[in-house]
Amino acid sequence: MREVQASPQPLNLNLRGRRLGVDVGQVRVGVALTDPDAIMATPLTTLERDLKKNFDVKIAAKLVAEHDVVEVVVGLPLAMSGEHTDSTRAAVNWAQRLSDRLERNGHTATVHMVDERWTSVQSHRLLLEAGISRREHKTKVDQQAAVTILEAALATARRAVEDRDPSVTGRSDQNIDMTMDESASSANPEGDLT
C-alpha cells in the first residue's frame, strides 16, 4: 500500500504527463486536469460524494486511467491554524482510498496532498470575476477549487525547480528578443521609456 502524504513540493515536473487535481467536499468532489505538459489546469467534472460505496473514488480512478494521469493532487483542507479537522481526515481518507484503488488496478500515478486553505475563497472570487452568478457557483465552485489546487501545486513545483537551478525559469518569455533597433536607441539616448 502506497501511503499518501502531504508535501510542500509534491509534483515531479521532470515526469511528462497530465496531472489531476481534486477538491474533496462533503457533498461533491471537484476535478481538474492539466495538459500533458502540465502547463495549464482546466475544470474537468464534478462527482457526487458516495460515502457508502465509494463510486466517486472509482470514477476518479477511471479518470486517471482514461486521461493517462501521472500524478494526482488532492486538496488538504486544514483549519486556518494548521490543525486537522473532520474535513481534513475525510480528504486524507478519500486520497488514500484513491491511491489504494490505483495500486490495485496497476496504475503508477502517485497521489499527493497539498494545503488548500484559501481555495474556496479564491474560487468564488474567480467565478465572480468571470461573470458567473452566485446562483451558478454551486455547480462550478468545486471544479474551480480543483483548478486552484492544481495550479498552486504546479506553481510550487516550478518554484522548486527554479530554486535548484536559477537558469531554469519555466517561463516562455526567455526567448523574447530584448535588443532595441538603432532608431529607438538614438531617439532616446538616456534609455528612458517615454
Rank of each mutant, 00 (worst) to 15 (best):
L76G: 01
L76I: 01
L76A: 01
L76F: 15
L76C: 09
P77K: 03
P77R: 01
P77T: 04
L78F: 13
L78M: 11
L78W: 08
M80Q: 11
M80C: 06
S81D: 09
G82T: 08
G82M: 11
E83K: 15
H84D: 13
T85W: 07
T85D: 09
T85H: 07
D86P: 05
D86M: 10
D86R: 15
D86Q: 15
S87I: 05
S87Y: 08
S87G: 13
T88A: 02
T88Y: 00
R89E: 15
R89K: 15
A90C: 07
A90M: 06
N93W: 08
N93I: 00
N93Y: 10
N93A: 14
N93Q: 15
W94H: 12
W94L: 06
W94D: 07
W94C: 05
W94Y: 14
W94Q: 08
A95V: 06
A95R: 00
A95I: 07
Q96H: 07
R97I: 10
R97H: 13
R97A: 11
R97W: 06
L98I: 12
L98E: 02
L98T: 09
L98F: 07
S99N: 06
S99G: 09
S99E: 05
D100M: 07
D100P: 00
R101F: 03
L102S: 00
L102Y: 00
L102N: 02
L102A: 03
R104G: 10
R104H: 11
N105L: 10
N105I: 00
N105C: 08
N105R: 14
N105G: 12
G106V: 01
H107E: 14
H107M: 05
T108P: 05
A109K: 02
A109S: 08
V111P: 08
V111M: 00
V111E: 00
V111R: 02
V111H: 01
V111F: 04
V111A: 04
V111W: 00
H112D: 05
H112Y: 09
H112R: 07
H112N: 12
H112I: 09
M113F: 10
M113K: 05
M113Q: 13
M113G: 08
V114G: 02
V114Y: 02
D115P: 05
D115T: 01
D115A: 02
E116Q: 05
E116L: 04
R117P: 06
R117N: 06
R117C: 02
R117S: 10
W118H: 14
T119C: 08
T119M: 04
T119K: 00
S120H: 11
V121A: 15
V121I: 08
V121N: 13
Q122G: 03
Q122P: 01
S123P: 02
S123M: 04
S123K: 03
H124P: 01
H124D: 14
H124T: 11
H124N: 13
H124W: 11
R125M: 07
R125S: 06
L126I: 11
L126K: 10
L126R: 08
L126A: 10
L127M: 04
L127K: 04
L128S: 14
L128E: 14
E129R: 06
A130T: 02
G131E: 04
G131Y: 11
G131A: 12
I132V: 15
I132C: 07
I132G: 01
S133K: 11
S133I: 04
